[in-house]
Amino acid sequence: MAATDATSLEAAQPALSGSTHPPAASEPSAIFTGPRRGSHPRAQASARPARVVEFRGASKLYGAGDVGLERATFVIRRQEMVFLVGPTGSGKSTIMRLLIKEIEPSEGRVRVAGRDLCEIPRQKIPFYRRNLGVVFQDFKLLPTRTVYDNIAYALQVTGASRKQIRATLPEILRLTGLSTKLHSYPHQLSGGEQQRVAIARAFASHPPLLLADEPTGNLDPETSIGIMQLLYRINRAGTTVIIASHDSGMVDRMRRRVIELRRGRIVRDEASGSYGGREESTDELGERLRREVA
């Protein structure tokens, strides 16, 4: 294992390492006192933030010369909120699928928390995925389960007991604003609510890294703002967030780091610093987004 950077591994994979750092009292701290020995990523923020995601010349060829991604090299550090933008087929989803290890790179390296994903054997993939939160454009909820059970399932797979789940879920439901929808089935919810359930499920186990593939693709602008606020809040609480989107207007207004892709190549990688924006609260962000859309 290429775990030369021990701190990054501990920070990004609390479930795998035995570290038990006390949760720091920033933002909604209660959500980090989950069933798992949650180590707050901020608790040990060093001068140089650790590399959560690292692509080194990663390429992906699909079959007959179809290029999914071409020699992509970038680093995403802890607590960053990064947007991947570009038209359909530009490689955003390929990056996401590489990160959840649904596919393997044809060339190059993909590291998460210092660990080369190629080195994770097949039967260990589920354990790796428990350290990721994943949100999709089409929500991917379990249609036969209620909101509560959908979110609980993400904890059940980790072997959490019913008691632990009952202790953890209310905070997540409150954070995502779903407390009143507990016993609804996905088909009874609006698109925005379904996406909130998906985010709640992705965040239920407090993963250090959250991936969102076009999370607002199916939603109207106002609902999208709500979803973005939610992702922003999760990011502010210490989770690294990567969002793929083709809504460049929204991405620009978020004033975060943007990696732009075109035909599998990275054509722009703009750090958030260039916006020179100060840290906003979640409410401020929402207000500004609404103002700028109008």
């Binding site: 589920p126 790796y128 993400a154 797979v157």
Partner: peptide, 16 residues
Amino acid sequence: RREVEVMKLVGATDWF
């Protein structure tokens, strides 16, 4: 099958 796909994505093991 979609249900199974979702289960795999949230980190359920095959036997789970």
